[in-house]
Write a protein that binds this DNA or RNA. Structure first.
Length: 493
DNA sequence: CGGATTTGACCAGCGC
DNA sequence: GCGCTGGTCAAATCCG
């Protein structure tokens, strides 16, 4: 943005030319501007501001800029009128001055917001960095302690124990683990504590299995020994925990390569022929950190083999390179959003805000949630709009970093709509039960509403398309060190 | 030689 | 209980 132009507008300095001129003009660098030039600058300013907006992901800024342009257009219209009616020149001139002042104020506000956004962004970056550093330290510490506790015998197995993973993902935050570790410092050995944790978790999961089994039997026999409001609470909690553990994000995108380049390192650990699809499904796990629980499945679409379906599961437990953060943020945020919306509101009904959103007519069917799948899955379909040039142009290929906040914001804004956190879900589940609602059907309803709510946001879908298209685009040149698998070749042949 | 990939075996969940 | 399916393991193999 041209600083001089800004200063001229922001300071709203009276210019000698404009002061003496009968026509309402503004000046720029000492040169009087006619209205067409003003429009030109306004348009230019809009373009520049839009570019900045794309970099800053500042939605509010967009509104400000639009307002600014509207004002300038309004200005022109008013000025044209005043030229035609000389009798109203004075009043028109006053109107123009008013508009100029308003214009300047808006720009000043715009700058303030911009600066504030910059500060906030830096703050968020800093918090993120601190979090990642702490996390890495924690992981290293745990590994150290594990190696002591196991006489130096530690492997991936220990880190990959699902119990531990589910424990951390079950809403027991690292803070809790920290507090447990500090209590351990007060006298308990790490080994004992870990054994106890594992026993508790094993016991929890065994109970959950038992309850699940019992419920299945009850369902078969139509027995009411456990009517909806009498089902043990643990069952609900376990179900929620299991959901959290199993939430998935599926991305459909056109790609010739065997994988989309999402910035992470993956190791293939299996391949299976899936039913109903001649193309094999490949299983990958993240190898950027030992014990990272993230896995993904890659499979070509049976109907259209140019479409690559990548399904992500889990959250990374390590810092990610900028190129990986876009996809990771998108998937983890989508999973969070998905899970946050997986329960009804506290009154047992779907939040009316969701229904309002669902009623919006602009759904593009790009993001869908599946309630019928064994695990809650959000599918992002990028095949329909991938050829839309206007959307492709929004984001240069290979530049994912600055999309992350926007994508995460777009996803994260949904839980706010639902007005709940993951921690509330178990409580709500109990309440839900007590009101005798059919959990499965309400869950499906909520998912449907969430689907509509997400897809109703054109900004979200556009940003998503841009982000993942750029990922897919870059995958042609970089397959992340993974060669084409047999499965892919097999399928392409 | 070490890391990545392949592939058959194994296991768990689910429906009948 | 049995068979089917999806997901994972781990030994064998490949590759740089």
């Amino acid at each position: 943005m041209d600083a001089t132009w800004n200063d001229a507008i922001l300071n709203n300095k009276p210019n000698s030319t404009s002061q003496h001129s009968p026509d309402p003009v503004m000046s720029f660098r000492g040169k009087p501007l006619v209205l067409d030039e003003l429009d030109f600058f306004a348009e230019n300013h809009k373009k520049e501001s839009s570019e900045e907006e794309e970099e800053d992901d500042d939605d509010q800024m967009v509104h400000s800029v639009e307002l600014h342009v509207d004002t300038s257009l309004d200005l022109r219209m008013k000025n044209t009128d005043s030229n035609n009616r000389s009798a109203e020149e004075d009043s028109a001139s006053e109107t123009v001055d008013d508009k100029k002042n308003e214009f300047g104020a808006l720009l000043a506000e715009l700058h303030q917001m911009n600066a504030e956004n910059q500060r906030l962004r830096e703050l968020v970056d800093q918090v993120n960095n601190n979090y990642n550093a702490l996390r890495m330290q924690l992981i290293k510490l745990k590994q150290k302690q594990n190696s002591h506790g196991n006489n130096g015998v530690i492997g991936e197995k220990e880190e990959m124990v699902p119990n531990r993973r589910s424990f951390s993902e079950m809403g027991v935050t690292e803070k809790d683990e920290h507090s447990q570790q500090s209590s351990e410092k007060e006298g308990k050995s790490m080994v004992d504590l870990r054994d106890q944790q594992n026993k508790d978790i094993v016991s929890l999961e065994a109970d959950a299995r038992e309850n699940s089994k019992r419920r299945r039997e009850l369902g078969r026999h139509g027995d009411q020994a456990f009517p909806p409001n009498k089902v043990p609470r643990l069952d609900q909690e376990s179900e929620t925990m299991s959901m959290i553990k199993k939430a998935r994000v599926s991305v459909r995108a056109r790609s010739d390569s065997s994988m989309i380049a999402d910035g992470c390192q993956w190791r293939k650990y299996g391949q299976k022929m899936a039913k109903g699809n001649p193309c094999p499904r490949a299983y990958y796990r993240c190898t950027m950190s030992t014990g990272c629980p993230v896995r993904k499945q890659v499979q070509r679409c049976a109907d259209d083999r140019s479409v690559l379906i990548t399904t992500y599961e889990g959250q990374h437990n390590h810092p990610l390179p900028p190129t990986a953060q876009a996809m990771a943020s998108t998937t983890s945020a989508a999973a969070s959003m998905l899970l946050s919306g997986s329960m009804p509101s506290s009154d047992g009904l779907i939040n009316p805000t969701i229904l309002e959103s669902a009623a919006l007519p602009c759904s593009q069917n790009m993001a869908t949630l599946s309630a019928s799948a064994p695990f809650p899955t959000i599918t992002l379909d990028l095949t329909q709009n991938a050829n839309n040039p206007s959307q492709l142009q929004r984001e240069p290929q290979g530049q994912l970093g600055h999309l992350t906040p926007l994508l995460a914001h777009k996803f994260m804004s949904v839980p706010k709509i639902f007005g709940q956190t993951l921690c509330d879900q178990t409580k709500l589940a109990g309440l839900h039960e007590s009101q005798g609602m059919d959990t499965a059907s309400s869950f499906a309803n909520t998912l449907n509403a969430a689907t509509a709510a997400i897809t109703a946001d054109p900004n979200f879908t556009a940003a998503l398309v841009a982000a993942i298209t750029s990922i897919v685009g870059s995958s042609h040149s970089n397959t992340n060190g993974t060669n084409n698998t047999n499965g892919d070749e097999q399928c392409n042949n």
